[in-house]
Design a protein around this nucleic acid. Structure first.
Lengths: 231, 231
DNA sequence: GTCTATAAAGTGATAGAC
DNA sequence: GTCTATCACTTTATAGAC
């Protein structure tokens, strides 16, 4: 909806970039206004002048990517529901609509991929604490919509089980974002961090299998054209 | 190994209890020494006197439950490996050895179940940032050991895939701990929070299915006696 | 052991010069 | 727009009285 307009360059943009970098690296509470102005070589008053307050800047950083992500999630889900009208949307495609929008936002920031995903992970991890009310509201809406779609795709799974499975899935996604780097530090046997693209497709398969647990012998081929009754 | 001895009552214990409660509620960085001494009705100097410093107290809180949890995980895994000598340990039992020790620690604290799990979630979520080196070391060891066991249980899954699936599973566990309460705020249709026991068993089934993704038509019956070749 | 008083450094915000 | 100086407040830690 409401687009956030920002200068392509200039001191305001430099402050924002520095803030994002520091928030990603150290967490939201550990970064002071002075840290930010120092990194972007501005004076201490700059944050107040350009953003009004530290709190304001924090909200901006959180909103900047989260709002587009949550909007794209809904758009993608609605597109799927149109595409599969009457039928139930394949599980994998629903999960993809949920996670893929995150990947699309990387190039909008000046941050390295590693730091960008870390920042996103930190934002999601703030749920319940210091998230701006508007984002909490967006997230609630996303969860409700996707839960409904998943319930249609998995009629054999009861509501409580499904809700918890979604909860576990969301946790996996947050961890994947926030600790992408930690992964290889803990499991040194593996090859270097692969592109997010391939991690996401692994995540989709993992989550689909978890969500589908206990449902019949094995699900139909995930991607190919499916023969279904048109009830 | 080294047992942490603590007074059953007295001002030192009251300080620790207050610290745990506040850390669980507000997060580690958001709690000051003054918050703690105020809640436990001590004077501002009490934390320094009894624990040396805020940092010291923080380390104690983090170590207090994490060390027993990680030790019990290893003990359980080794017991399983003895029980199934030569055979591969069933997937569900490995996951159970990984999560169950968390549940066992609840009663050791004065905190409500809700706050205790939240505290544990916050500690795990600190990975990479402010975790005491000894705990990072314990966690690394746990991950290595469990990865090895899971690799034996799932020979058809290649090492990279498995490592990522474990990563997703761990994320689900952390989220389940840290945001147990958030779950029902986001999905109001469901019944109230069930006992952790039933959440854990749901988590085990979800994770087992995710880890097993793509492996043959469907796994053998999870819990019952299994007929396996004794190679 | 417990407390008060205080040190030393850091915090966000702002008035006012340039 | 930019910057310095400063305010009002909070932080952890500690010296020294009781």
């Amino acid at each position: 909806m409401r687009e956030i307009t920002l200068p392509e360059s200039g001191p305001k943009r430099k402050l924002l970039d520095a803030a994002e970098q520091l928030f990603a690296e150290k967490g939201f509470e550990a970064v002071s206004v002075r840290d930010i102005t120092q990194l972007s070589k501005a004076n201490v008053a700059a944050v107040s002048y350009h953003f009004g307050s530290r709190e304001n800047l924090l909200t901006l950083v959180m909103t900047r990517y989260m709002t587009p992500v949550n909007e794209e999630r809904i758009v993608r889900l609605e597109a799927l529901e149109r595409k599969w009208t009457g039928k139930s949307v394949p599980l994998e495609e629903i999960i993809e609509a949920f996670v893929r929008p995150l990947v699309g936002q990387v190039r909008k920031s000046e941050l390295s991929e590693r730091l960008f995903y870390k920042l996103m992970g930190r934002i999601f991890g703030q749920q319940g604490d210091g998230l701006p009310p508007q984002i909490e509201e967006q997230l609630r809406n996303v969860v409700v919509r996707f839960t409904r779609a998943l319930a249609k795709a998995l009629p054999a799974v009861n509501a409580d089980d499904l809700a918890w499975r979604i909860h576990f899935m969301v946790g996996g996604m947050i961890h994947l974002l926030a600790h992408q780097d930690l992964f290889q530090r803990l499991t040194p046997g593996t090859s270097g961090t692969p592109p997010m693209e391939s991690i996401v497709s692994r995540f989709i398969r993992f989550s689909a299998a978890g969500l589908r647990e206990g449902v019949e012998a094995e699900a139909p081929t995930p991607k190919g054209p499916q023969v279904m009754f048109d009830f």
